[in-house]
Each structure stands twice: as structure tokens, then as C-alpha cells.
């Protein structure tokens, strides 16, 4: 019996979840990360609470929470939406810290020069600080993407037919547990390892200063 075609189909769904969740995560990373460094407490405090809640609990628990608890308070989500939103928000908490620390790693003199040239805070962030921080963000964002791809395996537990789910159902129908899980690992590896090599390549290039 040929296991590969269903597993490839599963991988395709895993990649879809990764794509959706990374889009959510990227957007929220910037929102929360920028809020963390604003001079305004009313933005900093909620952002800090958001980040700590999602970083302080487990991704799997968050997925279950979105899927089983949110409907009880009137938020009905399909498994797919629940999975994508939970993973996206979970990873945005880590992403927010990447955004924050990359921005704070930009030399303080850049803020001071912007101020001396009468830039507003927003203009300094947009024109001066973020363009320099982006280089620093790329490698850690790449690492998070690899972690996210692996974490999508967790949404199999709320019934999304991605790679891990496909593997488990093949095991159930054929009993070939060791072989199937080896194959599943091989497929994950084939997707994630090149990505991490790419990240390492960028990491080496990016660490060079301006």
C-alpha cells in the first residue's frame, strides 16, 4: 500500500494552516510589538498582558480553548479557524517580542537624531527605526516559522486532516504504526529542514552590521 499520496495531501493542509497562522501572527506581532515600545502606557500595558498570557500558556491548551470554550461564550469557530487563530495568536506573542527586541536593539542615537530633526514618534518609527530593525527580525521570524510549521501538528487533535492527522488515521486503518510515523517524520523533515537551512543562511548574512 502506498502511504505517500495521502501524507502529501496532509502536508498540503499543514502548509495551509502554517500560511494562515503565520499571516495572523505576523500582523499581530507588529501590532503588539509596536504597542510594547510606545511611550503610551495605555497601549503598553494591554500589549504586555496579551503577550504574557499567550507566552505563558501552552499552544495545545490555547487550541482547545479556542475550539471548546469560545463557542460557550458565543464565538463559534470552525476547527480550521480555531486552529489558525489559536496558533496565530500564540506565535504573535513570541513575534511581538522579536519586534520589540529588534527595535530596542537599534542604536539609541537613531532616535535622538530623529528627534533632533523634528520627526514625530510615528515618523521616526516608520522611516528610521523599523527599516533598520527589519534586518534583525528576519532570522528569528524564520525560526518561529519553522516552529509554527511543527506546531500545526497540534491542530490534528481538533480534527483537522493535516499531516499528523493523516498519519494517525493511516495507523488506525493499517496498524503499520512504526512505518507510518517514520514516514510522517520524513515528510515534516523534508518541509522544515530546508527552511531552517535558509534561516541559518540569512542569519549569517544579517549579523553583518550596516
Amino acid at each position: 500500500m502506498n502511504f505517500l499520496p495521502p501524507l502529501i495531501q496532509g502536508l498540503y493542509n499543514s502548509l495551509l494552516v502554517t500560511l494562515g497562522a503565520s499571516a495572523v501572527a505576523l500582523a499581530l506581532s507588529f501590532v503588539a510589538g509596536l504597542a510594547l515600545i510606545t511611550p503610551w502606557r495605555v497601549l503598553r500595558v494591554p500589549a504586555r498582558i496579551y503577550v504574557e498570557i499567550f507566552r505563558g500558556t501552552s499552544a495545545l491548551v490555547q487550541i482547545f480553548y479556542f475550539f471548546y470554550v469560545l463557542p460557550l461564550i458565543g464565538i463559534e469557530l470552525t476547527p480550521m479557524t480555531a486552529g489558525i487563530m489559536a496558533l496565530g495568536m500564540c506565535f504573535s506573542a513570541y513575534g511581538a517580542e522579536v519586534v520589540r527586541s529588534s527595535i530596542q536593539a537599534v542604536d539609541k542615537g537613531q532616535w535622538e537624531a530623529s528627534h533632533a530633526l523634528s520627526f514625530s514618534w510615528g515618523m521616526a518609527v516608520r522611516r528610521v527605526i523599523i527599516p533598520q530593525a527589519l534586518r534583525r527580525m528576519l532570522p528569528p521570524f524564520g525560526n518561529l516559522l519553522v516552529e509554527l510549521l511543527k506546531a500545526t501538528s497540534l491542530v490534528s487533535l481538533i480534527g483537522i486532516t493535516e499531516l499528523a492527522f493523516t498519519g494517525s488515521s493511516l495507523v488506525r486503518s493499517t496498524g503499520e504504526n512504526v512505518l507510518v510515523y517514520l514516514l510522517v517524520m520524513a515528510v515534516y523533515f523534508a518541509a522544515a529542514y530546508p527552511l531552517s537551512l535558509l534561516v541559518r543562511h540569512f542569519e549569517r548574512r544579517m549579523t553583518k552590521a550596516w
Binding site: G109, Q110, E112, A116, V128
Partner: peptide
């Protein structure tokens, strides 16, 4: 009045990008 003041820094602080 703040806008009428300019500054040159010890470490230049040019925008590298």
C-alpha cells in the same frame, strides 16, 4: 521653539539605511 534647534552628535548618528 524645539523645531528651531538642531544638533550634531559625537557619534554622528547618520541613518545607515
Amino acid at each position: 521653539v524645539a523645531d528651531r534647534i538642531g544638533m550634531v552628535f559625537q557619534h554622528f548618528n547618520l541613518f545607515p539605511h
